[in-house]
Computed example of a mutant assay.
Amino acid sequence: MMDGMTAGMGIWMLLVVLTVVAVLVLATLGSVWFYRRLRGRQPDGATVTGRDDEDPARRKLRERFAAGEIDEQEYESRLSALTHWR
């Protein structure tokens, strides 16, 4: 049979284990978020494809490609030029 002190220690041990698990889960989630955030950036600070809506030249180029006004080779060439001079 457990006395009062042993039962109290068991509760504290459970709380410590749960706290450690919670900290590990939060650290893992934070690391994943941070990695994804860094992976979404290019070295020059520009954002990766799909997130460049703030750049009107890229947006217009993407619209022209989507409308079929330019082919893939011309799109890639012009996109490369825009990225190079940015």
Rank of each mutant, 00 (worst) to 15 (best):
residue 19 T to F: 00
residue 73 Q to K: 09
residue 13 M to T: 01
residue 24 L to F: 13
residue 15 L to T: 00
residue 63 E to V: 13
residue 32 V to S: 05
residue 24 L to Y: 03
residue 82 L to C: 09
residue 54 E to C: 00
residue 12 W to A: 02
residue 72 E to Q: 11
residue 66 A to N: 04
residue 4 G to W: 02
residue 60 K to Y: 07
residue 66 A to R: 05
residue 55 D to P: 01
residue 18 L to C: 14
residue 28 T to P: 02
residue 17 V to L: 15
residue 11 I to P: 02
residue 64 R to C: 09
residue 46 A to T: 03
residue 8 G to N: 03
residue 29 L to Q: 08
residue 14 L to F: 12
residue 3 D to I: 08
residue 61 L to R: 03
residue 80 S to E: 11
residue 31 S to L: 15
residue 6 T to N: 00
residue 56 P to L: 10
residue 80 S to H: 08
residue 75 Y to C: 08
residue 55 D to N: 11
residue 1 M to R: 05
residue 59 R to P: 07
residue 39 R to F: 12
residue 41 R to Q: 11
residue 3 D to F: 06
residue 85 W to A: 10
residue 15 L to F: 00
residue 23 V to D: 03
residue 9 M to T: 00
residue 7 A to C: 08
residue 38 L to I: 14
residue 22 A to N: 08
residue 47 T to H: 06
residue 39 R to Y: 12
residue 61 L to V: 04
residue 69 E to C: 07
residue 43 P to A: 14
residue 52 D to L: 11
residue 35 Y to T: 15
residue 65 F to K: 06
residue 42 Q to F: 08
residue 48 V to S: 08
residue 51 R to S: 05
residue 8 G to V: 01
residue 73 Q to A: 15
residue 32 V to Q: 05
residue 79 L to H: 05
residue 77 S to W: 05
residue 3 D to P: 09
residue 45 G to R: 08
residue 55 D to E: 02
residue 39 R to H: 09
residue 85 W to N: 07
residue 36 R to F: 14
residue 37 R to L: 14
residue 81 A to W: 05
residue 60 K to Q: 09
residue 54 E to F: 12
residue 48 V to N: 08
residue 68 G to I: 09
residue 22 A to Q: 09
